[in-house]
Design a binder for these strands. Structure first.
Length: 197
DNA sequence: ACATTAAATTTAA
DNA sequence: TTAAATTTAATGT
């Protein structure tokens, strides 16, 4: 994404969060740009039944809900750290100044936003399927698409069954059964409980 | 075909 | 050594 040193030159600072810590809560007013240096962060929401829905799993290089910096709305999700993370944090005003002074970075930002929106469409299409298999394969394909090695069984899925359930809106038990079926069909392999796709 | 509930077992913090 | 994750099974929609 945006080069680290450029962010630093505009006053960005490193901040470290441990597992379970919350970077921001649903309903808060966005004030900063966050870019992940290391670790992983999930964006989630709890429905009226208290069931967790995961909107995205964010990895190093990605920014966290940057779209909110361009519109005057509150965060629609919580950002929760799922793996000890270091982020670069830049206040909104400084971020805007950077966008103004670096049109090329601003263009890149358009591209990143477009890409995420595109993937959101794909995910939504898959996740609307009546078949659990399609939903889960959609998530696996999406996550694998960022892996440098696209050959079979080369990608170790960094998600728990629980997380897969929260992403797809399925029950854990359904995820487990579906994953086992996919293993029988040789679509993926399970090596000591980890999914290799 | 998937959800729900319950219970057992394995694993990670 | 608790809490969380995974798994199996019975039953409901």
């Amino acid at each position: 994404m945006i080069p680290e040193n450029l962010l630093l030159s505009y006053g960005a600072e490193y901040e470290t969060f441990s597992r379970g810590e919350i970077i921001f809560d649903e309903g808060e007013t966005p004030k900063c740009y966050y870019q992940i240096i290391s670790g992983r962060i999930k964006l989630n929401h709890y429905n009226e039944a208290g069931k967790e829905l995961i909107l995205a799993i964010l990895e190093p290089g990605l920014s966290v809900c940057e779209l909110l910096l361009f519109i005057d709305k509150k965060y629609p999700v919580n950002a929760v750290v799922i793996e000890e993370s270091t982020v670069l944090k830049l206040p909104k005003a400084d971020f805007m100044k950077m966008m103004d002074e670096h049109p090329n970075i601003s263009k890149d930002m358009n591209k990143f936003l477009s890409e995420r929106l595109y993937h959101k469409f794909m995910m939504l299409e898959n996740n609307s399927s009546l078949h659990a298999e399609v939903r889960i394969k959609g998530v696996l394909d999406y996550h694998k698409s960022f892996s440098p090695d696209q050959s079979n069984y080369s990608y170790e899925v960094p998600l728990t069954r629980q997380q897969l359930a929260s992403i797809t809106g399925l029950r854990v038990e359904t995820v487990i059964r579906t994953i086992k079926n996919l293993e029988k069909q040789e679509v993926l392999k399970i090596i000591n409980r980890n999914i290799h796709y």
